[in-house]
Amino acid sequence: MNPTLKLALVLIIALEISFTQVWTVNVALLVVCFILMIAYRVKLKRLLWLTLVPLFFATALVWSLSLQGSASSHFLIVIFTRMFVYVYMGGVFTQTTEPLMLTRSLEQNAKLPSKFAYGFLAAFNLLPKIRTEVATIRAAALMRGQVLHVWSPQLYFKVILVAMNWSDQLASAMASHGFVEGAPRTHAVTVPLPKWNWWVCGMSLVAVQLGLFWGLP
């Protein structure tokens, strides 16, 4: 399915279930997401992780709400299942979507300006380098007997200087490779947006609306 459309669908449903309190729809969404993840061969380890983590947080939140608050049991069930829906829907989305395809699709199908699309991509590809850099900064400080914590301004100071440096270099590199902001572009890879995608998206939304406003518990 087209990444932009998929993202829009996931976001709309997530917003809707946040504002409504129908646990049956939550459970139905859970089942659908679970089947989709199985169908797309999501690894068992990942699936377990996606189940155990929300299980802990949902249980802790519900426990806390019932100790410190005055929520009805219906509302507690809604909150509990809602958390799983967020995680499972997110799981279906991230496990079936490549960041690269999403950015391409956002540029081509959602008309995101190309400077944003390529700017993001340039930075995302630095991810491994960024991880190493954080470790390097900490190690370099340790050698001078300084421990950099999450609350140390020096850590962020150094990180910001590196970020400025790299973004300068990357921007010049892109310019020297012929990237011109706002210039019309052709695409080596086109992301298709077939008609059936719109049907799937529309039908899913109709189904969710029916479920939410039919009067189900």
């Binding site: 400077k115 960024i130 954080v134 990180v159 910001i160 973004s167 990357l170």
Partner: peptide
């Protein structure tokens, strides 16, 4: 500009890493 966009993204990734 592309430079600012890259900067914000790199900064966001740094913050995420931290």
């Amino acid at each position: 500009h592309v430079r600012d966009i890259i900067f914000v993204t790199i900064l966001a990734i740094f913050m995420g890493t931290i």
